[in-house]
Design a binder for these strands. Structure first.
Lengths: 232, 232, 232, 232
DNA sequence: GATGAATGAGGATTCATTCAT
DNA sequence: CATGAATGAATCCTCATTCAT
């Protein structure tokens, strides 16, 4: 929690429990708010609920956040960790094939982002983008752009190494993004979009998607002779 | 507009202007409501706004819909036309290859659903599913299930004809669904998820997705020799 | 329903049924309004309900009565028949003893007023007097004053004839009025004030009251000598 | 005020001004509500008015009472103090004659109930019983039944001691109840039922009623022998 | 006249926000 | 700092009343 970091590292070694709690307050509120905003949406979440879930009183919430809207923005900003530089480094250091890299990235995205509560902010942004244009722009800049750039890099790497065929990357990035977004939204929308019975396994979902992206679903034998392949 | 039918069929040819308006009112209100709900979300849309956009007064809205919530439900129901049987018929009559069928279906989905305002309710449902569990269930049953069944059919057809390789359909259906859902959400979420500059062309987006689903993005020549293919 | 009316009665040369109904409209509305006002109170009665019960449309009600308030006033005025002159005549012509007269009057009041729907307006006035001061004044003048005067006459007659002992009539009138008002209110207030099980018989209630007013409930021994007791 | 008790008993002597107000709020609101409901009826009383009279804002009212209807119910419940056991004790301890007991009871009822604002709820119940059937039942059980039982006891005592003549108590109770209900209603209905000029003196009204109940209004000659007459 | 669709003022209720303690 | 009582703007919804047909 980056915000909490601002308050850490005080000098005392005997930090009283209460002190510690005080420092943790903003983080606890952001935590509670994230859960509730994701679950019920911005408007349907009451400030008092957030406070209650964080174990403080209504008034305290407004001690740390000027308004519910500011709380929302803080929740989004807080959970947009700039993990991209870290990822970029991994990407640059990767030594396997590009298909392997792609598979690695999507799986690691799932573990580090998709499966965590952080994925909830994506759902939040999709639901509230129109009501928070400035936040949407911020999100665009901090998450979407770097994320797309990362994927572009991977795809470009594959093309450069002759492992992927040439593509219009402006569209190809969505081959990777769409399945991830879909996965997130399914999980945060009461399972809408999913066939009810199967609460699909994310790992297998991703495996299926990766395989299809790389190889398509065309019949293996036929694939070489497919006329559609040539025209494409 | 199925709801309007309830009000049609008056025998008289002398239908007064007032009468004609009355018949049209529910539809006009649902239209206005769909626009606003999709644009701003359920909670952020005021009943009076909906009425105003439909060109009537606040009170009139409640003449046709018991509450804002009922209006919401009606909006969802209204826009779930049973287009599935029609599609099923087309599917059964289709004579081309399964890849062609898949391409045809996704393009025709775009034209008949994705590009229309009806697609807005999908976004609506994703945002509000948690707040309207009964509606979510209804949507599941009326839209998701039939939609998935349709896609299953197409894939099964391809497998049966040797045009697609064998797959676990429980996961494969999302190869088709995910890109469509993503496209819808992009367009109804202030372009979040999209690289800002390009307001991507849906046709080309779909073409790219279809091509990848069918053929993958593996390099043409290499694809046959790909080691990942074998292990996958 | 209303549609059929459009087709009926067209040809008849005799005073059409519709004509007669038209004349009856105000009365039917007042009837319906009385029932509803008594049952639910002024505010809780909706204009549309009154119209519906009278078998006409909302608009028609306002054709005959400028406002709901006017309707209320009309209901009260309509049901305050000046039966007092008639009663005064009976009183003057009465030849029995004053105790007999009193008993006769209370019983006849029950039959002519208490048991009829007209008694409902008394309840109405008690409930709404504060909200309709002008009506209250009107009611005072048209009903209360003449009514009290009548009772005063009876009591005075008894005193003059030595059948009643001298009393302060300003207070004695309520010996007669209170039981009647109570009876009415009990019947129009969901039985409040009544011991639940017994839906008390008005005739016997009145008999008990009359007997007590005349003879008191004092011990039998003492009252054995009372001549009035024997006749009662 | 029984409700306030729920909030009392704070141990601290440093009770802050805010705290003290909070304890008093429900009572103040109930007070204000009683006045207004009695004066104008339930529907004609606006929630904001009640709040204003209690010296708080609209919102505060709903902090203590879930809805206007709940406020109404609380008003009724609050003013039904279980004074009946207390009265029963007095009755059992009474040593005078039964006529004296009856007179004592009616006078003390006036002082303890009739003359207080609590009497207003009787008028309330009569006006709104049909709209609040559950409350009416509650009132029946909590007030009417015990009240009637008390009166029955008094009358039965008189009969047993040979001071009252035998009566059908099911009807005789109303000899006592009717005058009291009437008195209350007169005072809460803008004086309707009263001859305008005289704003009748309750004490004398009750004295007249008691005298009549005990002795009747029969001619002096007959009742000269009555022992009860002398003591009354 | 009669109708009932439309209106909009009015009132109940919610909840973000403030501030005295 | 923390609290939670108090506030009142905002919004849903009702229903008396109007008026085009």
């Amino acid at each position: 929690m980056s915000l909490s970091k601002l308050f850490c590292d005080k000098t005392s070694g005997v930090a009283a429990k209460r002190e510690r709690r005080k420092e943790a307050r903003p983080g606890e509120l952001l935590d509670a708010a994230l859960d509730l905003f994701v679950e019920k949406g911005f408007a349907a979440t009451r400030a008092e609920e957030v406070a209650a879930r964080a174990g403080v009183s209504k008034g305290t919430l407004f001690l740390y956040f000027q308004s519910k809207e500011e709380l929302f923005k803080a929740v989004v900003r807080e959970n947009i960790s700039g993990r991209f530089t870290e990822w970029r480094a991994e990407l640059d250091a990767f030594e396997g094939t590009s298909p392997e890299l792609l598979a690695y990235c999507m799986n690691s995205w799932w573990e580090r982002v998709g499966a965590t509560r952080a994925s909830g902010i994506t759902k939040l942004m999709m639901s509230e983008a129109k009501n928070f244009p400035d936040l949407a722009a911020f999100y665009q800049q901090e998450v979407i752009q770097p994320g797309q750039a990362l994927i572009r890099c991977i795809l470009q790497r594959g093309i450069d190494r002759g492992e992927f065929r040439p593509m219009d990357l402006n569209y190809a990035v969505y081959l990777v993004i769409a399945p991830m977004i879909f996965l997130i939204l399914s999980r945060h929308s009461a399972g809408i979009c999913l066939s009810k019975e199967a609460d699909l396994d994310p790992k297998q979902y991703i495996a299926t998607q990766v395989d299809a992206i790389l190889n398509g679903i065309g019949a293996p034998a036929a694939s070489a002779a497919q006329p559609t392949r040539k025209t494409a």
